[in-house]
């Protein structure tokens, strides 16, 4: 017991790291792009770095740079930020049970529940003998470190990039595709996955790229509520 807890941290870190490699590639690239964007917008590297630590929400941080360039409007900033971040409500609901009983780490786990960290922690299986809380903690911590490091680096480098990285941002798409596929292969019936596909594709067509997330969330909630009986009967979520 004692020995296990002594090595628990290292074992959890070792188990966690491979799960974060796609996020590392994506976050370093996106983080650097974000830092460059902030830099060419006239902010020194401390801005993207601190926003990576304090706000830590990719798309909102990009928007925040343009807000900082505009006039001071805290209420409007707050409302826009809420709209952009509303999808995180879903992540919390989905992680309620998984993050239960993680002790002191829970605050940090919730604080850093980004799209990518949510996807990894929600789909990764905690290896046997590894502390669940520490495993999630290291994935969350590594992910945030990649992002903050990338943002700071981009902020320092400015627009100097040594090689052509066009298309590298696809790494995030590919990761979500694989996680979605894994989920699909785990399920016997695909009701909820199909609800997700059709709700988001439908809302994207109707509402457009800039404002389809909130309607998509509403649609998903409605469908999951209306079809609760058949979905629960099909089961096989985990």
């Amino acid at each position: 017991m004692n020995k296990k807890s002594k090595n628990g941290g290292y074992a959890a870190l070792k188990a966690a790291f491979p799960h974060t490699v796609p996020v590392m590639a994506g976050y370093l690239f996106l983080g650097i792009s974000y830092g460059i964007y902030a830099n060419v917008s006239g902010f020194n590297f401390l801005y993207p770095m601190m926003m990576g630590i304090i706000v830590y929400g990719g798309s909102l941080e990009f928007v925040a740079v343009s807000m900082l360039l505009g006039s001071f409007a805290p209420l409007q900033t707050f409302l826009v930020a809420l709209l952009i971040q509303a999808r995180h409500l879903f992540y919390g609901i989905a992680m309620l049970e998984k993050y239960r009983g993680t002790g002191w780490k829970k605050l940090y786990l919730i604080y850093t529940l980004s799209d990518e960290t949510f996807s990894v922690n929600c789909s990764a299986k905690v290896p046997e003998g590894v502390d669940k809380g520490l495993f999630y903690f290291f994935i969350s911590l590594l992910d945030q470190m990649y992002w903050v490091f990338g943002a700071a680096l981009g902020g320092i480098l400015g627009s100097f990039i040594p090689f052509n990285t066009e298309g590298l941002d696809f790494v995030m798409t590919a990761m979500f595709v694989v996680i979605f596929l894994e989920q699909w292969l785990k399920e016997k019936k695909h009701y909820t996955a199909l609800i997700g596909v059709f709700a988001s594709a439908g809302c994207l067509l109707v509402f457009g790229a800039d404002s389809f997330l909130i309607p998509t969330m509403v649609c998903i909630l409605c469908f999951l509520t209306v079809f609760r009986k058949p979905i629960e009967k099909a089961g096989g979520f985990e």
Partner: peptide, 10 residues
């Protein structure tokens, strides 16, 4: 039920 739908959304 949400994760599969959220992954599709992402």
């Amino acid at each position: 039920a949400l994760p599969a739908a959220i992954f599709a959304m992402l």
